[in-house]
Amino acid sequence: MSGACLANLSSISPEPSSFSPKSPIRSSLSDMDGSACPSLFPLHRCKTLHLVRHAQGFHNVAGEKDHSAYLSPELFDAQLTPLGWQQVDNLRKHVNACGLSNKIELVIASPLLRTMQTAVGVFGGGDYTDGLSVTPLMVANAGNSNRSAISSLNAPPFVAVELCREHLGVHFCDKRRSVSEYELLFPAIDFSPMETNEDILWKADVREANEEVAERGKKFMDWLWTRKEKEIAVVTHSGFLFHTLNALGKDLHPLMKEEVCKHFANCELRSIVIVDKSAIGSGNSETNYPGRIPGGLDLPSDSAPKKHSEKGASTNSLA
Protein backbone atom coordinates (compact mmCIF):
# COMPACT_ATOMS: atom_id res chain seq x y z
CA MET A 1 0.00 0.00 0.00
CA SER A 2 1.29 3.43 -0.87
CA GLY A 3 2.78 5.56 1.89
CA ALA A 4 2.14 8.78 0.01
CA CYS A 5 -0.37 11.36 1.18
CA LEU A 6 -1.54 14.55 -0.50
CA ALA A 7 -1.39 18.23 0.37
CA ASN A 8 -2.76 21.04 -1.78
CA LEU A 9 -0.53 23.92 -2.86
CA SER A 10 -3.28 26.41 -3.70
CA SER A 11 -4.79 28.63 -1.01
CA ILE A 12 -8.45 28.58 -0.02
CA SER A 13 -10.00 31.94 -0.78
CA PRO A 14 -13.82 31.86 -0.99
CA GLU A 15 -15.67 34.92 -2.19
CA PRO A 16 -16.56 37.42 0.56
CA SER A 17 -20.25 36.91 -0.13
CA SER A 18 -19.96 33.29 1.08
CA PHE A 19 -19.08 34.41 4.63
CA SER A 20 -22.42 34.75 6.37
CA PRO A 21 -22.50 34.20 10.18
CA LYS A 22 -24.08 30.77 9.74
CA SER A 23 -22.20 29.86 6.56
CA PRO A 24 -21.05 26.21 6.50
CA ILE A 25 -17.93 27.38 4.68
CA ARG A 26 -17.12 29.80 7.49
CA SER A 27 -17.63 27.02 9.99
CA SER A 28 -15.40 24.66 8.05
CA LEU A 29 -12.66 27.25 7.79
CA SER A 30 -12.91 27.89 11.53
CA ASP A 31 -12.49 24.17 12.12
CA MET A 32 -9.42 24.20 9.92
CA ASP A 33 -7.86 27.20 11.64
CA GLY A 34 -8.75 26.30 15.22
CA SER A 35 -8.93 22.56 15.80
CA ALA A 36 -6.50 21.30 13.17
CA CYS A 37 -2.82 22.04 13.68
CA PRO A 38 -0.54 22.55 10.67
CA SER A 39 1.28 19.36 9.69
CA LEU A 40 5.07 19.20 9.65
CA PHE A 41 7.08 17.11 7.18
CA PRO A 42 10.81 17.06 6.33
CA LEU A 43 11.30 18.73 2.96
CA HIS A 44 13.24 15.78 1.53
CA ARG A 45 10.18 13.58 2.21
CA CYS A 46 8.06 15.73 -0.12
CA LYS A 47 7.69 16.11 -3.86
CA THR A 48 5.75 18.75 -5.77
CA LEU A 49 3.64 17.36 -8.61
CA HIS A 50 2.18 19.51 -11.35
CA LEU A 51 -0.66 17.34 -12.63
CA VAL A 52 -2.02 17.95 -16.13
CA ARG A 53 -4.88 16.31 -17.93
CA HIS A 54 -4.25 16.10 -21.68
CA ALA A 55 -5.81 18.68 -23.97
CA GLN A 56 -8.96 17.97 -25.97
CA GLY A 57 -8.71 14.86 -28.12
CA PHE A 58 -10.94 13.74 -30.97
CA HIS A 59 -12.34 11.02 -28.69
CA ASN A 60 -13.55 13.71 -26.24
CA VAL A 61 -15.56 15.39 -28.99
CA ALA A 62 -17.06 12.13 -30.24
CA GLY A 63 -17.74 10.79 -26.74
CA GLU A 64 -19.60 13.92 -25.63
CA LYS A 65 -21.98 13.46 -28.56
CA ASP A 66 -22.38 9.70 -28.12
CA HIS A 67 -20.70 7.76 -25.31
CA SER A 68 -20.72 4.57 -27.40
CA ALA A 69 -18.24 6.26 -29.77
CA TYR A 70 -15.47 5.26 -27.34
CA LEU A 71 -15.96 1.71 -28.59
CA SER A 72 -15.07 2.72 -32.16
CA PRO A 73 -11.76 1.44 -33.58
CA GLU A 74 -11.60 4.72 -35.53
CA LEU A 75 -10.66 6.48 -32.27
CA PHE A 76 -7.66 4.22 -31.65
CA ASP A 77 -5.01 6.22 -29.73
CA ALA A 78 -6.87 9.47 -30.43
CA GLN A 79 -4.76 12.58 -31.07
CA LEU A 80 -5.40 16.20 -30.11
CA THR A 81 -7.95 18.32 -31.96
CA PRO A 82 -7.02 21.78 -33.33
CA LEU A 83 -8.78 23.21 -30.25
CA GLY A 84 -6.69 20.88 -28.11
CA TRP A 85 -3.50 22.34 -29.58
CA GLN A 86 -4.80 25.84 -28.79
CA GLN A 87 -5.27 24.70 -25.20
CA VAL A 88 -1.67 23.42 -25.21
CA ASP A 89 -0.39 26.77 -26.47
CA ASN A 90 -2.35 28.62 -23.77
CA LEU A 91 -1.03 26.38 -20.99
CA ARG A 92 2.50 26.77 -22.31
CA LYS A 93 2.16 30.56 -22.05
CA HIS A 94 0.91 30.17 -18.48
CA VAL A 95 3.76 27.93 -17.27
CA ASN A 96 6.28 30.30 -18.80
CA ALA A 97 4.61 33.42 -17.36
CA CYS A 98 4.39 32.04 -13.81
CA GLY A 99 7.94 30.70 -13.87
CA LEU A 100 6.94 27.05 -13.57
CA SER A 101 8.86 26.11 -16.70
CA ASN A 102 12.11 26.98 -14.90
CA LYS A 103 11.32 24.78 -11.89
CA ILE A 104 10.30 21.45 -13.42
CA GLU A 105 13.03 18.82 -13.28
CA LEU A 106 11.18 15.97 -14.99
CA VAL A 107 8.13 15.48 -17.23
CA ILE A 108 6.28 12.16 -17.06
CA ALA A 109 3.72 11.32 -19.73
CA SER A 110 1.27 8.51 -20.24
CA PRO A 111 2.35 6.73 -23.46
CA LEU A 112 -0.54 7.75 -25.69
CA LEU A 113 -0.56 10.26 -28.53
CA ARG A 114 -2.73 12.86 -26.82
CA THR A 115 -0.75 12.89 -23.57
CA MET A 116 2.68 13.00 -25.21
CA GLN A 117 1.54 15.71 -27.64
CA THR A 118 0.29 17.73 -24.67
CA ALA A 119 3.48 17.12 -22.65
CA VAL A 120 5.96 18.18 -25.33
CA GLY A 121 3.78 21.08 -26.46
CA VAL A 122 3.53 22.53 -22.94
CA PHE A 123 6.92 21.70 -21.43
CA GLY A 124 9.13 21.21 -24.49
CA GLY A 125 11.75 23.54 -25.94
CA GLY A 126 9.59 25.22 -28.57
CA ASP A 127 9.69 24.92 -32.36
CA TYR A 128 12.53 22.86 -33.75
CA THR A 129 14.65 24.69 -36.31
CA ASP A 130 17.06 23.25 -38.85
CA GLY A 131 20.65 23.06 -37.72
CA LEU A 132 19.91 22.29 -34.06
CA SER A 133 22.18 19.57 -32.71
CA VAL A 134 19.62 18.33 -30.16
CA THR A 135 17.09 15.56 -30.74
CA PRO A 136 13.51 16.75 -31.28
CA LEU A 137 10.93 15.84 -28.68
CA MET A 138 8.35 15.48 -31.45
CA VAL A 139 8.83 15.24 -35.20
CA ALA A 140 6.81 17.42 -37.55
CA ASN A 141 3.18 16.36 -38.09
CA ALA A 142 3.35 13.61 -35.45
CA GLY A 143 -0.02 11.92 -35.32
CA ASN A 144 -1.27 14.02 -38.28
CA SER A 145 -1.09 17.05 -36.02
CA ASN A 146 -0.06 19.58 -38.69
CA ARG A 147 2.38 20.94 -36.11
CA SER A 148 6.04 21.68 -36.62
CA ALA A 149 8.68 19.65 -34.81
CA ILE A 150 9.27 20.47 -31.14
CA SER A 151 12.79 20.86 -29.77
CA SER A 152 14.28 19.34 -26.62
CA LEU A 153 16.62 22.33 -26.23
CA ASN A 154 16.67 23.59 -22.62
CA ALA A 155 13.79 21.23 -21.77
CA PRO A 156 13.73 18.83 -18.79
CA PRO A 157 13.94 15.06 -19.38
CA PHE A 158 10.73 13.41 -20.63
CA VAL A 159 9.80 9.85 -19.61
CA ALA A 160 6.88 7.68 -20.75
CA VAL A 161 5.40 5.60 -17.91
CA GLU A 162 2.67 3.01 -18.37
CA LEU A 163 1.46 3.13 -14.77
CA CYS A 164 -0.24 6.50 -15.39
CA ARG A 165 -2.34 5.40 -18.38
CA GLU A 166 -6.10 5.86 -18.53
CA HIS A 167 -8.56 3.04 -17.74
CA LEU A 168 -7.35 -0.02 -19.65
CA GLY A 169 -9.49 -2.05 -22.03
CA VAL A 170 -12.59 -1.83 -24.29
CA HIS A 171 -12.23 1.86 -25.31
CA PHE A 172 -10.03 2.00 -28.41
CA CYS A 173 -8.94 5.57 -27.65
CA ASP A 174 -7.06 4.16 -24.63
CA LYS A 175 -5.13 1.52 -26.59
CA ARG A 176 -1.53 2.50 -27.33
CA ARG A 177 0.70 1.96 -30.35
CA SER A 178 3.94 0.03 -30.22
CA VAL A 179 6.90 1.65 -28.50
CA SER A 180 8.89 1.42 -31.74
CA GLU A 181 6.24 3.58 -33.48
CA TYR A 182 6.29 6.15 -30.69
CA GLU A 183 10.08 6.34 -30.69
CA LEU A 184 9.96 7.55 -34.29
CA LEU A 185 7.39 10.23 -33.45
CA PHE A 186 8.89 11.35 -30.12
CA PRO A 187 12.65 10.71 -30.43
CA ALA A 188 13.73 12.53 -27.24
CA ILE A 189 11.21 10.87 -24.92
CA ASP A 190 12.68 8.08 -22.80
CA PHE A 191 10.63 4.91 -23.29
CA SER A 192 12.97 2.65 -21.29
CA PRO A 193 10.44 2.13 -18.41
CA MET A 194 8.09 0.46 -20.93
CA GLU A 195 8.39 -3.30 -20.48
CA THR A 196 6.88 -4.45 -23.78
CA ASN A 197 6.90 -3.08 -27.31
CA GLU A 198 3.26 -4.00 -27.96
CA ASP A 199 0.32 -3.06 -25.74
CA ILE A 200 -0.42 -6.22 -23.76
CA LEU A 201 -2.32 -4.40 -20.99
CA TRP A 202 -5.32 -3.31 -23.08
CA LYS A 203 -8.03 -5.98 -23.48
CA ALA A 204 -10.85 -5.67 -26.00
CA ASP A 205 -13.46 -7.28 -23.72
CA VAL A 206 -12.43 -6.23 -20.18
CA ARG A 207 -12.55 -2.67 -18.84
CA GLU A 208 -10.35 -1.92 -15.83
CA ALA A 209 -12.37 -1.25 -12.67
CA ASN A 210 -12.14 2.08 -10.84
CA GLU A 211 -10.59 0.35 -7.83
CA GLU A 212 -7.91 -1.16 -10.05
CA VAL A 213 -7.09 2.25 -11.53
CA ALA A 214 -6.72 3.67 -8.00
CA GLU A 215 -4.43 0.82 -7.00
CA ARG A 216 -2.32 1.39 -10.10
CA GLY A 217 -2.19 5.06 -9.18
CA LYS A 218 -0.78 4.18 -5.76
CA LYS A 219 1.90 2.07 -7.43
CA PHE A 220 2.71 5.04 -9.67
CA MET A 221 3.14 7.27 -6.62
CA ASP A 222 5.42 4.69 -5.04
CA TRP A 223 7.47 4.59 -8.26
CA LEU A 224 7.84 8.38 -8.09
CA TRP A 225 9.79 7.97 -4.84
CA THR A 226 12.47 6.05 -6.73
CA ARG A 227 13.19 9.24 -8.69
CA LYS A 228 15.54 11.87 -7.29
CA GLU A 229 13.62 14.80 -8.85
CA LYS A 230 11.50 16.87 -6.47
CA GLU A 231 9.51 19.04 -8.92
CA ILE A 232 7.75 16.86 -11.49
CA ALA A 233 5.10 17.44 -14.16
CA VAL A 234 2.76 14.51 -14.87
CA VAL A 235 0.65 14.59 -18.03
CA THR A 236 -2.05 11.96 -17.84
CA HIS A 237 -5.82 11.34 -17.98
CA SER A 238 -9.03 12.38 -16.24
CA GLY A 239 -10.02 8.95 -14.94
CA PHE A 240 -6.54 8.11 -13.71
CA LEU A 241 -6.24 11.43 -11.88
CA PHE A 242 -9.73 11.29 -10.35
CA HIS A 243 -9.49 7.79 -8.91
CA THR A 244 -5.86 8.08 -7.80
CA LEU A 245 -6.32 11.40 -6.02
CA ASN A 246 -9.54 10.29 -4.33
CA ALA A 247 -7.82 7.15 -3.05
CA LEU A 248 -4.86 9.09 -1.65
CA GLY A 249 -6.85 12.09 -0.43
CA LYS A 250 -9.32 10.32 1.84
CA ASP A 251 -8.15 12.11 4.97
CA LEU A 252 -8.06 15.62 3.53
CA HIS A 253 -10.34 18.31 4.97
CA PRO A 254 -13.53 18.44 2.82
CA LEU A 255 -12.64 21.85 1.38
CA MET A 256 -9.15 20.67 0.43
CA LYS A 257 -10.51 17.42 -0.95
CA GLU A 258 -12.86 19.39 -3.20
CA GLU A 259 -9.88 21.37 -4.51
CA VAL A 260 -7.59 18.42 -5.05
CA CYS A 261 -9.83 15.50 -5.99
CA LYS A 262 -12.46 16.91 -8.36
CA HIS A 263 -12.46 16.02 -12.06
CA PHE A 264 -9.93 17.77 -14.30
CA ALA A 265 -10.90 19.81 -17.36
CA ASN A 266 -8.97 19.32 -20.59
CA CYS A 267 -5.48 20.80 -20.26
CA GLU A 268 -6.05 21.80 -16.63
CA LEU A 269 -2.96 22.02 -14.43
CA ARG A 270 -3.25 21.43 -10.70
CA SER A 271 -0.25 21.52 -8.33
CA ILE A 272 -0.07 19.33 -5.23
CA VAL A 273 2.50 18.11 -2.71
CA ILE A 274 2.91 14.42 -1.93
CA VAL A 275 4.52 13.29 1.33
CA ASP A 276 6.46 10.08 1.83
CA LYS A 277 5.14 8.91 5.22
CA SER A 278 6.57 5.42 4.85
CA ALA A 279 10.14 6.68 4.24
CA ILE A 280 10.45 4.60 1.06
CA GLY A 281 12.05 7.54 -0.74
CA SER A 282 15.43 9.16 -0.35
CA GLY A 283 16.42 9.60 3.28
CA ASN A 284 18.97 12.35 2.67
CA SER A 285 18.34 16.08 2.57
CA GLU A 286 20.30 18.28 0.20
CA THR A 287 19.61 21.43 2.22
CA ASN A 288 19.83 20.40 5.90
CA TYR A 289 23.04 21.42 7.71
CA PRO A 290 24.22 19.75 10.95
CA GLY A 291 25.69 22.82 12.68
CA ARG A 292 28.46 22.82 15.36
CA ILE A 293 31.19 22.62 12.75
CA PRO A 294 33.87 22.95 14.04
CA GLY A 295 32.76 21.35 17.31
CA GLY A 296 32.07 23.56 20.31
CA LEU A 297 29.74 24.18 23.20
CA ASP A 298 26.21 25.09 22.11
CA LEU A 299 24.18 26.64 24.91
CA PRO A 300 20.42 27.16 24.86
CA SER A 301 19.71 30.89 25.09
CA ASP A 302 17.90 30.54 28.42
CA SER A 303 20.79 28.72 30.11
CA ALA A 304 23.61 30.96 28.84
CA PRO A 305 23.14 33.76 31.42
CA LYS A 306 23.11 31.19 34.24
CA LYS A 307 26.37 29.62 33.04
CA HIS A 308 28.06 33.00 32.74
CA SER A 309 26.83 33.97 36.23
CA GLU A 310 28.27 30.79 37.75
CA LYS A 311 31.57 31.39 36.00
CA GLY A 312 31.73 34.95 37.38
CA ALA A 313 31.05 33.79 40.92
CA SER A 314 33.79 31.19 40.68
CA THR A 315 36.29 33.80 39.44
CA ASN A 316 35.43 36.14 42.31
CA SER A 317 35.98 33.45 44.92
CA LEU A 318 39.51 32.93 43.65
CA ALA A 319 40.40 36.61 43.82
Rank of each mutant, 00 (worst) to 15 (best):
A214E: 10
R165M: 04
A265C: 07
T129P: 06
F172H: 08
K93R: 11
Q86V: 13
P294N: 09
G3I: 02
Q79C: 00
F186E: 01
L168D: 04
I108L: 15
H308V: 09
P290G: 00
E231W: 15
S20E: 01
E258G: 07
S238Y: 02
E215C: 09
L318G: 10
I12G: 00
L132R: 11
L100M: 02
Q79F: 00
K228H: 15
Q79S: 08
K65G: 07
W223C: 12
R45Q: 04
N154V: 03
L318P: 11
G126L: 12
N96G: 03
L71F: 13
F58K: 14
K65Y: 09
A7P: 02
M32Y: 01
L40H: 10
M194Y: 06
F264R: 02
E229A: 08
D251Q: 13
A109Y: 04
A4K: 11
H237M: 06
S72T: 03
D302Q: 13
C261V: 08
L106N: 01
A155C: 03
R176I: 04
F242P: 04
E258I: 08
A247G: 07
H94A: 13
S35E: 11
S145A: 11
L51A: 06
S148N: 09
C267S: 10
F172L: 03
T236N: 03
K93F: 07
P38D: 02
Y128N: 00
L112A: 10
I200T: 15
P14A: 00
E212W: 06
L29G: 00
L137R: 07
T81S: 08
M221W: 02
L132Q: 11
D130S: 10
E64M: 13
S17K: 02
P187Y: 13
P157T: 01
A247T: 12
N141T: 01
S303R: 02
T135E: 14
F264P: 01
T236E: 04
F58W: 13
N288K: 09
P16G: 02
E286Y: 10
R165I: 05
